[in-house]
Structure formats: structure tokens, C-alpha cells
Amino acid sequence: MARVALLSNPRSTGNRSMLPEVRSFCAEHKDIFHYEVEHVDQIGTALKTIARVKPEVLVINGGDGTVQAALTELHHGGHFGGPHYKNGPPPVAVLPNGKTNLIALDLGASGDPLEALKRVLELARTDMVPHIVSRELIQLSDGTVGARPVLGMFLGGAGLADTILYCRHKIYPLGLPNSLSHMLTAIAAIIAILFGVRAGFLPPMPAPVKVSVLKHGEWQGQFALLMVTTLQRLLLNGRMPGAGQPLGAMQMMAIEGTRGVLFRALVAAIRGRLWRSRVSGVHLERGDEIRIESDHSSVILDGELFEARADRPIVLTPTAPVPFLRLAA
């Protein structure tokens, strides 16, 4: 029986440079079972094999797509059954190895992925209970009965999705550090909306969408930012309304894409009040079902691209709580 099972994707950007160190570390510690996949399609087989060694912790080492695929398979695959897993699958830890690392950040993992792995092993050798936290996952589907939803923890839509795609296709290829790439992307998006600039080197204006939160209302228009998450912590130490409260609903923020609203939202964010107070044109809601309807508008769930259409909306619902291992004290 292994204390830690490590699932790695050698093709993820971060692993191209640091995976040899991870392999060496695993070879020196026999209580780590290391399984590598070359493609996300192999994750189901990987988890089936990992379940046989009965790990105390499952660690995901890969980019956003690897994490998203692993969480989906973990939820739907049913690999962790039997007496050893009577309380469900082992807690999940995520190494900070993606471009944005939002899930890892929420779980207290940042900086060097190898140092995070060492911390996981340290916790696995002790009583982990104080470090186990629950998070719901977001189920994304088109509402079709019997369809297998895709799972994740952070969804960006409307102008945010356009900005993420802009960063992915225009900024990342420049080879800049992630933090600088994200800063340049944010500046470009703000310039495009605040000053109404239209240019091929800037993010496009967001397409109109309709967002509805069950029992709370609906909003329609162009949104500079649309996010839905079950994370407690975001970039820049932002915390969604209700963070720390009992689980039971997804958290949504939608910022209307007008110059005045964006300016007020920026001021509130700088003053640290965006997440805690109501700002005109900024919609903060919690709900058990969120629908996104549009004519060919993109949404991105943990790195994977989907498209909302007028005849096939994006439907989001939460899962039951899933155990995760928080690395910070």
C-alpha cells in the first residue's frame, strides 16, 4: 500500500523541465506510487491502477486539462470502491504546475511543485484530518438527460473567456513569465473596454449572453467578466462572497461590459471591496443551477473550451463535496 499516489502528465508545460526531479524524488521514496500518462484519455486506466495500491492521498501533477480530466474521471469512474474506500476516494492534492494554478492556490500550494510534493508526503505520514477540506465540483452539461457532465472548479465565460483565449493564443507564445503574461493580458482587456479600442492585438468585445441563476433571477447583455466557481480563494487573494460558509451552492460573479461599470469594479477591487460589497452593474450570486445561453459564446472550465448556443445552453450544477488536501497550515 502506498501513502501517496502521484498522477503525472509529462506533456504539461511545467513538467517538461521539472519531471526528472520528480521521478528521482519518487524513486527515493518507496511510499510514493508514480503513474505517468501521455494523454488525458489514459487517466481512467491510471486511476483504476492507482486504486489497487490503496493510497492515502491522490496527487495530480499536470496542467489544467490534466486536473480537469482527473476530477471528471474520479467522480464518474467509480474506481475507488470496496471496503478500503467506504468513506469515498482519497483526498486530492494538486501540485502548482499549470498556467494559473487556481485550484492549487486555493489548496495552499504555490511555488515549486517538488516542494509541494514533499509537503504532501510529510502530511501523509501524519494525521491528515486537520488538513482535509471539502470542495464541491462544478458539473457542466448541455442539460441532455443521460449525458456525462464534465467537472471542474472554475469557469470563465463572456469577456473573461475571450481574454483567457487571447492570453493563450497571443501572449503565452511570447515566452514571458506567467505573472507578466497575465498582467499584460489584464491591461489589454481593460484598455479594450474602458477606451472602446478595436484592434487585432487586443481582446475582442464580448458577445451578448444570458445568465440565469435558479430562484435568483437572470441577466442579459455583454459582460466583461463572468465567472462561476466553487473555490474559496482566487488570484490576488480575492475571496468570493460566502467563502468559508457551509457548502451547497456555486458562486457567480458577472460584471457588465460598460465603461462605467468596469471603472467602478476596478476601484472596488483596488480598495478590496469588490468581493464584499454590492457595486452597481456587478452581480454576485450563489446558486444550485446556473444556465448560460448565447449565440456562439465561449466558456472555459479549468482550461477546457466549451461553447454556449441559443439551442444548447451551458448548464452548471454542483456535485456532492469532494475531499481535498490543503497544504497550508
Rank of each mutant, 00 (worst) to 15 (best):
Lys170Ala: 00
Lys170Asn: 03
Lys170Ile: 00
Ile171Cys: 03
Ile171Arg: 03
Ile171Ala: 02
Ile171Tyr: 05
Ile171Met: 03
Ile171Glu: 00
Tyr172Pro: 03
Tyr172His: 03
Tyr172Thr: 04
Tyr172Arg: 05
Pro173Lys: 07
Pro173Glu: 04
Pro173Gln: 14
Pro173Asn: 14
Pro173Trp: 12
Pro173Tyr: 05
Leu174Trp: 11
Leu174Ser: 00
Leu174His: 10
Leu174Val: 07
Gly175Met: 06
Gly175Leu: 04
Gly175Trp: 01
Leu176Trp: 06
Leu176Ser: 01
Leu176Pro: 02
Leu176Ile: 11
Leu176Gln: 06
Pro177Lys: 12
Pro177Gln: 05
Pro177Phe: 08
Pro177Arg: 10
Pro177Tyr: 11
Asn178Phe: 12
Asn178Trp: 11
Asn178Lys: 11
Ser179Arg: 11
Ser179Glu: 11
Ser179Asn: 09
Ser179Gly: 10
Leu180Met: 15
Leu180Arg: 09
Leu180Gly: 08
Leu180Pro: 11
Leu180Ile: 14
Ser181Asn: 03
Ser181Tyr: 02
His182Ser: 12
His182Tyr: 14
His182Ala: 03
His182Lys: 08
Met183Tyr: 14
Met183Ser: 15
Leu184Ile: 10
Leu184His: 07
Leu184Ala: 03
Thr185Pro: 10
Thr185Ala: 13
Thr185Asp: 08
Thr185Val: 08
Thr185Ile: 13
Ala186Cys: 12
Ala186Tyr: 14
Ala186Ile: 11
Ile187Tyr: 00
Ile187His: 01
Ile187Met: 05
Ile187Trp: 07
Ile187Ala: 09
Ile187Gln: 08
Ile187Ser: 07
Ala188Lys: 08
Ala189Pro: 07
Ala189Leu: 13
Ala189Ile: 13
Ala189Cys: 15
Ala189Glu: 02
Ala189Phe: 11
Ala189Met: 14
Ile190Val: 15
Ile190Glu: 15
Ile190Phe: 15
Ile190Asn: 12
Ile190Ala: 15
Ile191Phe: 13
Ile191Gly: 06
Ile191Asp: 01
Ala192Asp: 10
Ala192Glu: 03
Ala192Ser: 15
Ile193Asn: 01
Ile193Trp: 00
Ile193Gln: 03
Leu194Thr: 12
Leu194Val: 14
Leu194Ala: 11
Leu194Trp: 00
Leu194Asp: 07
Leu194Phe: 13
Phe195Val: 09
Phe195Ile: 06
Phe195Tyr: 13
Phe195Pro: 02
Phe195Glu: 00
Phe195Gly: 06
Phe195Asp: 07
Phe195Leu: 14
Phe195Thr: 14
Gly196Glu: 05
Gly196Cys: 03
Gly196Met: 00
Gly196Phe: 00
Val197Leu: 08
Val197His: 07
Val197Trp: 05
Val197Asn: 06
Val197Ala: 05
Val197Lys: 01
Arg198Gly: 02
Arg198His: 11
Arg198Phe: 00
Ala199Gly: 15
Ala199Asp: 09
Ala199Met: 14
Ala199Trp: 12
Ala199Gln: 13
Ala199Tyr: 13
